[in-house]
Amino acid sequence: MDMQLVFDWAWLPRLSDGLIVTMQLTGACLAGGAALGLLLSLARVYTRGPVYWLASAYVQFFRGTPLLVQLMIIHFGLPTVGIRFEPFISGVVAMGLNTAAYQAEYFRGAIQSVRSGQTLAARSLGMSPLQTVRYIVLPQALRLVIPPWSNELVYMLKYSSIVYMIGVSDLMGVGRTISARSFRFLELFIVVAMMYLAVVLILTFALRWLERRVHVPGLTTTGRRG
């Protein structure tokens, strides 16, 4: 192993291009996943019948099967029925659909941990169910969801590396390309690993800061106050 190569910054510009793609991918899928996940969680908490069952089946399917299989279905499977995406878009769609299922569960847990007295009090003021959700439940639930959500962010950042398999030049993909030519697998992937670790570290601190920023005294996940 040639440690010189690790600290030689020659690879950095190209790897940084890859890192930007990785972050775009992660950001896009998380945003889409949050929107869809929130809808799914509301369906799972506040509806009954077909809507509830559909949302539950969705969550079951996407949590119960590997992300890679989902990516294969979307990128290679859907073209057989005439639906084609660019590799990057396939990545966003697969990861977005996947993370939506997980985020739905975080949202659901957070919504259900908002104490029922809060809803009662809102209704007693004359709020409609929608207003209750909008002004009382969600502001509390969204704060509670930050810790598991931070976890999910780190997961998606790491999982986004699978898109190199369908030809996206993300951080992993660029690393793969350079290493295949230079045969410096070890040094190169140590650099790649450190770049992922650095982003994970920055994001973790940023989200902790956010959590403290929006913290409200007495609002805790454990619901110890019953």
């Binding site: 192993m1 699978i162 290493s179 992937f189 670790l197």
Partner: peptide
């Protein structure tokens, strides 16, 4: 912290190609 922070694929590459290279 290391093994939780690095993507699986990067670890797979490190172990397979890295050890082979060594």
């Amino acid at each position: 912290w290391f093994f939780r922070g690095v993507p699986e694929l990067v670890l797979l590459f490190l172990f397979y190609f890295g050890l082979t290279q060594m």
